[in-house]
Design a protein around this nucleic acid. Structure first.
Lengths: 336, 336
DNA sequence: GCCGGTGATGTTATCGCTAACATAAGTACA
DNA sequence: TGTACTTATGTTAGCGATAACATCACCGGC
């Protein structure tokens, strides 16, 4: 414990009575070593509390075992959950997770974050919830390392992975239609979000399939906007009886607006959300929503990246389908 | 753009017509350099798209500019927000944020996470929301680098920083008392959380000061437990008219239980939470709570760490006091 | 009994930097 | 006008690993 972290490969070699190269071979488990020698080296390493210098290793191998995580909105439930899952997964494969948080709305922030990662040099990159343009910039700067992007548009130089937002939106919309609703409004996510667009598309197609007229209000993921849209929405005039909100946050804002207007959910208005945030069961009423398994998604993304790092061609990725979670915010329309 | 990231200090030196050491001096801004020489070197570096090798630098300086973040529950709003703020702050000072997520309930997971950080070698460590025992283990393993811990018990070898949970609890309790409540219940956080204990203490002291009888139910931060406790609580028998919940999550569960029992908030029961999660304004009713500024806290913690890294004695840290956010879940008791 | 092959180990060079010392050209002062 | 500093730069050594090549037993087959 005394000379904490100071022993080098030479110290170990000396104590074990072998050459430093033999120690290196034992540590990296390559080349052939007599079992007895290996034992001696391992004992010496343990006694000296030896840990190889990552810096020295990185210098000579040109690989540092660090993966970069470029993330926007890391405070949100989804990205935070994925980061968590991915770090654990990366660690299992002996990789380090270096996170850089950027601001989706500031191109300057993209460049800064990417430059930061370039400086330290990373072996692979994961981009989470970042804008297409930011991803493109990253891909251009990093064209020689594997990149996995989660929930983004396809971009040259990066492999994209995500949940099947389209199918999720179809399920959500179908649920409302099957309950008997005809005037179904969609509150969408921001225009520059690929997930938002996929959900919008799924909604529109499902409506069209049932010969129903789509109605869309543009949102931005935030509860505040959900609230604002809810306040200004005229249910009488539009005859809306159900709303598909592109995420749970906006649905929360919507709920509040409806409470204020005295519109009861689900009797007068059905609402379905998307994500299944932890708070969802505790809304008033508990919200029916589409569950996304961020944990699995994070794990899948990391597996994919590690595959690519190993130089293997990953098998085609099977997009995860969100699951309908039935709670109490949807019901049949009040007057058929 | 072609030989991406491959230029070395020697290439730059050659192009600029100087020695590699001069390049080093320009890059590190030390020693004296003729302005004209500096300009030539900088131009050469730019032309070659030169970035110093962190590995080589780390090898020789024995410092790698990496800070470790040991975090539990990184998915929760608080820790996630702090991580975000701290990474940005660290980046400003040219440090890298390497995150390791551990499981507070598994000592094995602590050891694993800490060993991971030890392997890569870090310059400083931030511990967020981790258990006392885990922090002690970390402090023991890292006694030669600065450690800053957020929201933990004081531990030898680490500097602790946090918000003033005690004062926050006093404010929350006082708010209820000033409204006229006498039978005030506290739903606490887990026993092994220092924050929970400080809040509990603040509650008890305030009650005692006003000659009121404290009542405590043991919680664990989760909405599910808040719900369970709310269901089993007999308001008639206990005469409880107000509840101070140690966090907003549990309050959410409580709200749901009360809705089910037909107890209206705040008419029949006042509830105050703690944290001010983003969803708080959208609860039904919007919840009165104690705001914690996680952003500021994260920044303060990082400033502290950077101070210590520079070898300076940081000035005494001024704990941030949570702010009362008045919303609609508290009111005067129904019958005076 | 000589030869090529394999298994186990040692030796040397090298990765790209910074530290420490060396050098050369001014600059100030006696 | 030489000594003593400062300023600006160059030269050499070494950080702690891995890679590549060298060495030396020992083994089996002819």
């Amino acid at each position: 414990m005394a000379n904490e972290g100071k022993a080098t490969i030479y110290d170990v070699a000396k104590l074990a009575g072998v050459s430093h190269q033999t120690v290196s071979r034992v540590m990296n488990d390559n080349g052939s070593i007599r079992p007895e020698t290996r034992a001696r080296v391992e004992a010496a390493a343990k006694e000296l509390n030896y840990r190889p210098s990552m810096a020295a290793r990185a210098l000579v191998t040109n690989r540092n075992s660090i993966l970069g995580f470029l993330v926007a909105d890391s405070v949100l439930y989804g990205p935070a959950g994925m980061l968590n899952a991915m770090e654990k997964q990366a660690r299992l494969a002996n990789y380090y997770a270096l996170t850089v948080a950027i601001d989706n709305d500031s191109p300057e922030s993209w460049a800064e974050g990417i430059e930061h990662l370039r400086r330290i040099g990373i072996e692979g990159l994961v981009c989470i919830a970042i804008k297409k343009e930011a991803l493109q910039l990253a891909a251009k700067s990093y064209f020689n390392i594997p990149i996995v992007a989660i929930d983004t548009e396809e971009v040259e130089g990066a492999t994209t992975i995500g949940i099947d937002n389209h199918k999720g939106a179809v399920s959500a919309t179908t649920h409302l239609i099957e309950l008997g609703h005809k005037n179904i409004l969609h509150i969408s996510g921001p225009k520059d979000s690929i997930e938002a667009q996929a959900r919008l598309q799924g909604y529109k197609e499902t409506m069209a399939e049932h010969n129903l007229q789509p109605m869309v209000l543009q949102g931005d993921w935030s509860s505040a906007t959900g609230f604002r849209l809810g306040v200004s929405l005229d249910l009488e005039k539009t005859k809306v009886t159900a709303i598909f909100s592109a995420n749970d946050q906006m649905a929360m804002g919507l709920f509040k607006a409806m409470r204020l207007k005295g519109v009861s959910i689900p009797e007068r208005l059905s609402v379905i959300g998307f994500d299944d945030v932890p708070e969802a069961p505790y809304f008033s009423p508990p919200i029916t929503t589409m569950l996304q398994d961020f944990n699995r998604l994070g794990e899948a993304a990391m597996e994919l990246l590690i595959f690519k790092l190993a130089g293997l061609k990953p098998s085609k990725y099977q997009a995860l389908k969100p699951q309908l979670v039935l709670r109490e915010s949807t019901a049949a329309p009040h007057n058929g």
